[in-house]
């Protein structure tokens, strides 16, 4: 069974720690070149390889990631 996923990031509250980036098995999340109002390079989804596994959200200390997943 295959899954396709998507994440939504509360970029205003992301602190850009990057822990999600190293935990993503599909390389679907990266730190943006842009900064939020606190000056952090916030995380953003990249590409279309996300499988909605929630690894990024589980390790996120600030609970800023929401994860969606569908079977395909």
């Amino acid at each position: 069974m295959a899954f396709k996923g998507a994440i939504e990031i509360d970029t205003a509250h992301c602190k850009g720690c990057g822990v999600c980036v190293t935990n993503c098995p599909t390389g679907s999340i990266r730190l943006s070149g842009m900064v939020n109002s606190k000056g952090y390079n916030y995380a953003e989804m990249t590409g279309d390889a996300c499988i909605g596994c929630s690894a990024c959200a589980l390790v996120c200390p600030d609970s800023v990631i929401t994860v969606y997943r569908v079977k395909i």
Partner: peptide, 24 residues
């Protein structure tokens, strides 16, 4: 399709912890 979101019991207060801190 929602599979993970911020827990309902985590308040909207911005945590004062440093980026990447395990406390959160």
């Amino acid at each position: 399709n929602l599979v993970y979101r911020k827990p309902a019991l985590i308040t909207d207060n911005v945590m004062h912890y440093c980026p990447g801190c395990s406390h959160g």
